[in-house]
Each structure stands twice: as structure tokens, then as C-alpha cells.
């Protein structure tokens, strides 16, 4: 995040937060982001967040794993070094199923987790600016970008929706 001037309010309860977000939507205040200590259900549609597409990444990586395993074993046992094991055909498909399955799962999970961290901008050694230490504890935060929402309208919004604290910060 580049330098953003942020005004944010902290709420004590997720129900207050949900109501406040509804009010902000009604008043057409453009919310920069909402931070919560745990996933609050019902928040995503209010913020207009589209459903995550991570599962698509999972599917693509899974398909990649499946092909890698199956085509890899096929190539090795039919072209690169064909060996007869126990009188079975070189291309013994049923015997390839377990490893194909395992690699599908392995590729899908690794791919999805790595995608998750990259799209979120998270990872080992990443330092993000935090608005408040208590957001990971018991505070529910609504943040406005001061370029989008004027300080006075933000303050009156926080006051009317029962925010327990209002702060400003440059992050």
C-alpha cells in the first residue's frame, strides 16, 4: 500500500459493524476496507466482495498434478524404460491411479496455498501496516480513505453508528 491517509473507527461487536456497513452503503460512503479478528459472516455481500476464485486456481493446479503424474508414469513405463512387473502390461493404468490421485491433491493444495499468499500480498517477512493492535483481538474496524471520504462525514458516520473509537493514521 502506498501512503494512504486513513480514518478508521473501531466497533466492539460484529453486529454493530454489520449495521454500520449497511449505513455506510446507504449513505454511499466508500469503505476502504474492513478488518476483523475473525471471518464475519454476512459481511462479504455488504462490501460487494465477489466470491473468491481460489477454487479455480485449485482446479487448475490439480489438473496439472493429475497430468504430470499420469503422463509422467506413462512416458517412463512405455517409452523411457519399459519394464514388465509381475507379467502386467507396460501401461498398467489401474496401478497408476493411487499416485495420480496423490499428486493431484498435492499440486492443488500447494498451488492454492501459494496463490492465496501471493494474491493477498502475504508471505514470510512481509510487513504490512496495521491500523490497530486490537483488530486481531476484539475490535472490528471500518477504514475510510481520506481522499474518498471527508473527515467530517466519516466522524459523524462513526458517531451515529456507535463506534467506540475513531482514529486517523497514515499507512
Amino acid at each position: 500500500m502506498a501512503h494512504n491517509e486513513v480514518i478508521f473507527g473501531l466497533y466492539n461487536d460484529e453486529e454493530d459493524l454489520l449495521k454500520a456497513v449497511k449505513v455506510a452503503n446507504a449513505k454511499h460512503l466508500d469503505i476502504m476496507d474492513v478488518y476483523t479478528p475473525f471471518p464475519v459472516h454476512g459481511l462479504d455481500p455488504l462490501l460487494g466482495l465477489e466470491e473468491s476464485r481460489l477454487h479455480i486456481a485449485g482446479f487448475i493446479f490439480g489438473a496439472l498434478g493429475l497430468l504430470t503424474a499420469f503422463l509422467g508414469m506413462t512416458w517412463i513405463f512405455t517409452k523411457d524404460w519399459p519394464i514388465i512387473f509381475g507379467g502386467k502390461p507396460y501401461w498398467s493404468v489401474p496401478a497408476f491411479i493411487p499416485i495420480t490421485f496423490e499428486l493431484t491433491v498435492l499440486f492443488a493444495s500447494i498451488g492454492m496455498v501459494v496463490t492465496f499468499y501471493i494474491v493477498n500480498g502475504l508471505g514470510p517477512g512481509v510487513v504490512n501496516a496495521y491500523l490497530d493492535d486490537r483488530i486481531t483481538d476484539d475490535k472490528f474496524c471500518i477504514a475510510f480513505d481520506k481522499h474518498e471520504v471527508s473527515t467530517s462525514s466519516a466522524e459523524s458516520f462513526f458517531k451515529s453508528t456507535g463506534a467506540s473509537e475513531v482514529h486517523e493514521k497514515t499507512i
Binding site: D33, V34, P37, L47, L122, V126, I135, C141
Partner: peptide, 8 residues
Amino acid sequence: FGWTGSAK
């Protein structure tokens, strides 16, 4: 990993 708790 720099977790912020953002809704997204």
C-alpha cells in the same frame, strides 16, 4: 506473514 485481518 503480515496478516491484517482484511475482509477480503
